[in-house]
Design a protein around this nucleic acid. Structure first.
Lengths: 190, 190
DNA sequence: TCTGCCATGTAAGTTGTTACATGATTAT
DNA sequence: ATAATCATGTAACAACTTACATGGCAGA
């Protein structure tokens, strides 16, 4: 216990969580972090490859190299017993809610220094982006999670993270509506 | 335009946004990042002091040193014309919604590897934390933003960021309820 | 022919965290 | 006495971003 054991390393654990569900390569992981794993964590492929090397050094994951004709070898990673144990322990440690950090909100806070039209345009862009994500999430819900009670245990937990994504996006869409309305009222008064 | 001009530097702009509203010291800024500025950005005092030095070097802010008896000098920072111009330009550049990163959601995603009671306890802790923040925000709303149309322009924009905090916390509280309910049903079936 | 996908990584820089450091004043 | 508040910072490290780098294969 002398050295650095009690760190956060959320990315490491997000990777473990993904690999426990389904072993795959770094490349595939990067794609999953852009899809369903993206409901709760984001990471670039560079970060993922670096973290995979560390995790393998620590023996939390193991790697099977699959040679492929005419392309780089594919490295298939799986979580070891030690890795699953570490994930379990990490889950049991209390953590704090993630502090908010959002560029758009800085812009709104300082909204009086910029023209209303600039702010409005940016809000509409963001609302559109959130609506698109919301519809992606709702499609996934309809396609894969129609009968929640018939799902496997791990699929039920995944569904709960998808539901979080859905209520999160709805919160943004609703708030954007509210702010756009405010700004339009202000513009009308001029 | 040869060098690094088009970076993100969101912290720098969050500081500018706070100082435009009210000039203050690094120490006071750190407190504000723990309060109202915390609705949209978080930062430690170390980060803030480092960033203030950079911003002063770039002449985006200026500093008036106020000597004090028996304590370190207080440094009162204000945004320069150049700084306000930079803030305005930054606001006009489009930005993307912040990608989600939340430890609790990793834990839920991998929920099947840990005991249900562990997950339940953590969910209840988080729900409590979100409820507390929500009530803090709602108190602020009642105290300072009762008649939104009578507020100054900059206070109106601040109110909109507070509203975001309120709907954000409600989203979490509601989702926690939903997940706790699911887990309780699962436990009952055993 | 050119774009995009498959599949991996390195290097340099920025941002954020944790630990350390100082020292007087005020409230319990 | 002890802890909290005021007020500032440095140093080391961890996390994340951006740019660079390779190279074949498949489809338009």
């Amino acid at each position: 216990m002398s050295s650095s054991e009690s760190k956060i390393m959320a990315l490491a654990h997000a990777i473990l969580a993904a690999l426990v569900e389904a072993p795959c390569s770094g490349y595939d992981l990067a794609k999953r972090f852009d899809g369903s794993v993206g409901f709760f964590w984001s990471a670039s492929h560079q970060q993922i490859y670096r973290e995979l090397s560390k995790l393998e050094d620590q023996k939390w994951i193991s790697c099977e190299t699959i040679p492929q004709a005419g392309r780089p070898d594919k490295k298939l990673y799986s979580v070891t017993d030690l890795g699953e144990q570490q994930l379990k322990e990490w889950i049991a440690q209390p953590c704090e809610p993630t502090p908010v950090k959002d560029d758009l909100l800085i812009k709104i806070f300082a909204g009086h220094v910029a023209p209303n039209q600039t702010i409005l345009a940016e809000l509409e862009r963001h609302q559109k982006a959130h609506l698109e994500r919301l519809s992606t999430y709702e499609n996934l819900e309809q396609r894969y999670f129609q009968n929640p009670q018939e799902l496997s245990e791990s699929a039920q937990f995944q569904y709960l993270t998808l539901l979080n994504g859905i209520t999160y996006e709805r919160h943004w869409v609703t708030w954007c509506d509210r702010v756009i309305e405010s700004l339009n009222q202000k513009i009308e008064k001029l």
